[in-house]
Design a protein around this nucleic acid. Structure first.
Lengths: 171, 171
DNA sequence: TGATTAGATGAAGAAACCTTCAGTTTCGGG
DNA sequence: CCCGAAACTGAAGGTTTCTTCATCTAATCA
């Protein structure tokens, strides 16, 4: 029997009360903690729920399946990085190219070094889940942001996208 | 209940007849094929046995568990690489440093490029199994070989181990 | 050729997980 | 204070996969 090839991955409920939002947060945090603690092979939904201080049922109220849970954790992490990039892009408009570049690199390294283990753990997950898609989305997003910033640079430039790509490669 | 923390990983039997050696070989090959075909997440011992043309029982006659099977596959691959390195080291004694270096790099790249997919697949496994240990062992082994070769170089040298390390990093 | 050992088989036991859902508790507005 | 909705719970169902073992077949040797 073939395993069901693709499963839903949208959240089941949107938290409306405060406590549910807290649960989602705890679950996402717990996911990374478990990932770091026992590795992805032994990460089980029950274990995550336990660590989050909720029951499995609660977990499944917000994440339709294990895969979606991992994707959500990955997405959240990347969102944080993207946010950092966004901040830098907005605060460096009208600066020189050199300034832009150094600031960007600095931000990336900071974000990655802050908790290198987490990054590695999540990266290892992204191959199992369809994490490539999520990573790609975020890289596209960052690209847009950077292009916007570059447009306001003092110097004119011809090849911007390639510069950007090389920056992203560093991550 | 905690999963049994560490399981035996030594082979169960040493093949003495020809057919058993063939079985072991088929199983090891099948392991890589399955790895390439369906990925490590869906690699099961039954599937490997099926592909190898033997029964699960036969598989378990030579590999005490799934983990040991994967480790064996990894080890075998690395042994091949090491063998290639060994050959190069022995045939390049008394040559100049430059010759040694280029030959080594060439060998490494060839070995890795020959079937890049296999390398990647096995690498992805090495994180789940305690593959790091195996990889380390083989890197130590290569180190010895290279040091031996370097000792016969035309030019004298002070820092050899570091050179070696940087070579291995490329892999 | 008969006995002994190596090798192979696959159904069945056992363990680990994912996921559901009927029932319970908590929250917030009327 | 009461009631409907939102959240939470965790035992149980159902899969999947690992691993064992009693049994059968093939090879080796005297």
């Amino acid at each position: 029997m073939p395993r069901r090839s693709q499963v839903p991955l949208e959240p089941r409920k949107s938290p409306v009360q405060a406590r549910s939002a807290a649960s989602v947060d705890a679950i996402l945090q717990a996911t990374i903690q478990v990932l770091l603690g026992v590795g992805k092979e032994r990460l089980t939904t029950t274990r995550v729920a336990l660590r989050a201080g909720v029951s499995v049922g609660t977990l499944y109220q917000y994440f339709p399946n294990k895969s979606a849970l991992l994707q959500a954790a990955l997405k959240r992490h990347l969102d944080e990085v993207t946010e950092a990039v966004e901040l830098v892009c907005k605060t460096h408009r009208g600066k020189s190219l050199r300034e832009m570049a150094t600031a960007l690199i600095k931000t990336f390294l900071q974000a990655k070094m802050k908790d290198a283990k987490t990054s590695v753990a999540l990266y290892s997950v992204s191959s199992d889940v369809d994490g490539a898609k999520i990573v790609h989305q975020m890289s596209v997003r960052c690209n847009e942001l950077i292009v916007q910033m570059l447009a306001t640079a003092r110097e004119p430039l011809s090849t911007d996208t390639q510069l950007v790509a090389s920056m992203l490669q560093g991550a």
